[in-house]
């Protein structure tokens, strides 16, 4: 077996999710190569070469790979795909966009968002918003996989000594280009990597109240901040705060859900958290069915009190 792991990065550093994907690759077994495709991303190739269990880093550097457009990234992957039995990507916005393109060109199925490896061709993945888990087997010659980070404990980031080989980028397809980015800037930990998340829903009322009520609590806890779809739709916070079936999948040590009812689509994104706290004034809110500790209270009273007591 030989695995190609497509690293997720921003041309400067490896994304945390890559370590979880590496853990999945290690469970599949066999030789693991990491592809670092980007522009001026030497530092990422260096970091990837330190990953334990990785024997080779393929470093493809070209201006047209710098924005991780799926058309160009896929074209470069295809130049080496023939050498591998498995191609793995993290279930991030880049991984989810490129992996199915690769699978289609290889004429093989993709196994999306695996949460467990049963054998080299058998995997577990959530379906129906995590209300069921399917164990699926692929008998295709190659298997393309995206890995859900919360399913695998991160592999260590150092200790390895892989060789770095440069790989020629496939020519620019010219099909797409990034014209603008509006990325959320935050001093807080990344939502998908945070140990503690304070998450707010429609119950917060508006964006100003969301910030006024939740920020002091998140500051005290060193927490990342998340939200329900309703809170994002209503413009309280940007889209990258959304937790759920169609947002981010998180599994922190502690998830504090404030003014969130607990729709199945929201639960799908957070119910693997180690400890869940729910603060909601409705004692029948479904969020309490997954909460380890439920507090039936007016959030505008309880949350400031909690923050003050920390």
């Amino acid at each position: 077996m030989s695995i190609l792991l497509i690293a997720d990065h921003d041309n400067t550093k490896l994304a945390a999710a890559t370590l979880n994907t590496l853990a999945a690759a290690t469970q599949i077994g066999g030789e693991v190569h990491v592809l670092v495709a980007g522009a001026q991303c030497q530092s990422v190739a260096q970091a990837a070469s330190q990953l334990p269990g990785v024997s080779k880093v393929l470093h493809a550097d070209a201006a047209h790979l710098g924005q991780f457009g799926p058309e160009n990234l896929c074209a470069t992957v295809m130049t080496v795909a023939g050498n591998y039995t498995h191609i793995l990507a993290s279930a991030t916005s880049v991984g989810k966009s490129v992996a199915p393109r690769i699978a289609a060109l290889l004429d093989v199925a993709q196994v999306s968002e695996i949460t467990a490896v049963k054998s080299a061709n058998t995997f577990v993945r959530p379906i129906y918003a995590g209300n069921a888990f399917a164990t699926v087997q692929s008998n295709d010659a190659k298997i393309v996989i995206t890995v859900r980070a919360t399913g695998f404990d991160a592999a260590p980031a150092s200790g390895g000594t892989a060789v770095i080989e440069s790989l020629a980028a496939a020519p620019d397809t010219g099909l797409s280009q990034v014209v603008r980015q509006e990325l959320s800037k935050s001093e807080r930990p990344d939502l998908t990597a945070a140990k503690i998340i304070v998450s707010g829903g429609r119950g917060l009322g508006d964006g100003d109240k969301y910030r006024a009520v939740l920020t002091p609590l998140a500051d005290k806890l060193g927490a990342a901040m998340g939200a329900s779809r309703a809170a994002v739709d209503a413009g309280f916070v940007p889209n990258d705060y959304q937790v759920g079936q169609t947002g981010k999948i998180v599994a922190p040590e502690l998830y504090i859900a404030v003014g969130i009812s607990g729709a199945i689509q929201h639960l799908a994104g957070m119910k693997d958290s180690k400890v869940i706290v729910a603060i909601n004034k409705d004692p029948d809110a479904p969020i309490f069915s997954v909460a380890d500790y439920g507090l039936v209270a007016d959030l505008f009273v309880a949350v400031p009190e909690l923050a003050a007591a920390l």
Partner: peptide, 15 residues
């Protein structure tokens, strides 16, 4: 097309 990506929003021009 403006896309919802992990870090926020990204606008791409596609043919």
């Amino acid at each position: 097309v403006t896309r919802e990506v992990d870090g926020g929003l990204e606008t791409v021009e596609i043919k």
